[in-house]
């Protein structure tokens, strides 16, 4: 796969970027004991941590990566080569995705060992949730990058999606604690169906609706990327 060449270069850059290294490798390790002291229940904790990895390691990391490569004119250069547009985006997002998947495995192992979580009875839903989540948040990161002028601005432009998903998708507190009307609306946030699928890996739960919502987000995200993604610097 030709996109891997870009991914390898990105991985080297990732190792050389101390801030990114700290945010993706050390920060999650600090997070685990904090969360364990708050919530001793295993499955919700694992699900929440995977959601957190999708937001920070995939979505936020990729907004900054796409903006940085665009402003460095790297995207423009890659575009005159043989790679197709999707291959360029895939290559640039590979390391972040790999790191996020690594974090998720780490969370599962650490939380599993400490709280004794059972193995998921329906692991395919877990897998679907993770893969769908990675796809959705990669696409959303590409869309957000189009509205982000500089790498520093990414902290502000990523806030709407981060906040909505942190507080509205049952990551911090269960949706059932909210008024019914509001909870019904929040079902349509991009992270909510992912978390529902993850939970469905362990226990019976709704599966069809989350799958549909997730698919719609992927379609919308693909359209928005084609429509708005910028390959040239914003000046």
């Amino acid at each position: 796969m030709r996109a891997v060449a870009v991914g390898q270069a990105e991985l080297k850059l990732f190792w050389r970027n101390r801030t990114a290294l700290f945010n993706s490798l050390l920060l999650p390790l600090l997070l685990v004991p904090v969360l364990i002291s708050v919530d001793a229940d295993g499955v919700p904790l694992v699900v929440g941590l995977i959601g957190f990895a999708l937001l920070m390691a995939v979505y936020y990391n990729l907004v900054t990566t796409f903006v940085a490569r665009r402003e460095e004119l790297v995207l423009k250069r890659l575009r005159v080569g043989e790679l197709t547009d999707p291959e360029i985006l895939l290559g640039a997002s590979l390391p972040s995705v790999v790191v996020a998947l690594g974090q998720m495995v780490l969370y599962c192992v650490v939380v599993g060992v400490i709280t004794g979580v059972e193995l998921p009875s329906r692991p395919w839903f877990l897998l679907l949730g993770v893969l769908g989540g990675v796809a959705v948040f990669t696409l959303l990161a590409a869309v957000s990058s189009a509205f982000t002028r500089t790498v520093e601005m990414a902290q502000a432009t990523s806030l709407p999606i981060l906040m909505a998903c942190l507080f509205g998708s049952g990551l911090m507190f269960p949706l059932s604690a909210l008024p019914e009307g509001l909870a019904a609306v929040l079902e349509y946030l991009p992270l909510t169906p992912v978390l529902e699928l993850l939970r469905a890996g362990w226990a019976d739960g709704p599966v069809l609706q989350p799958l549909i919502v997730l698919a719609v987000w992927i379609v919308l995200g693909t359209y928005a990327v084609q429509r708005w993604f910028r390959w040239d610097p914003r000046r």
Binding site: A9, K12, L73, V74
Partner: peptide, 12 residues
């Protein structure tokens, strides 16, 4: 293609 302004990641 050699662009008028092409970029490389500065840390490579």
């Amino acid at each position: 293609v050699m662009l008028q302004e092409g970029g490389f990641p500065p840390d490579l």
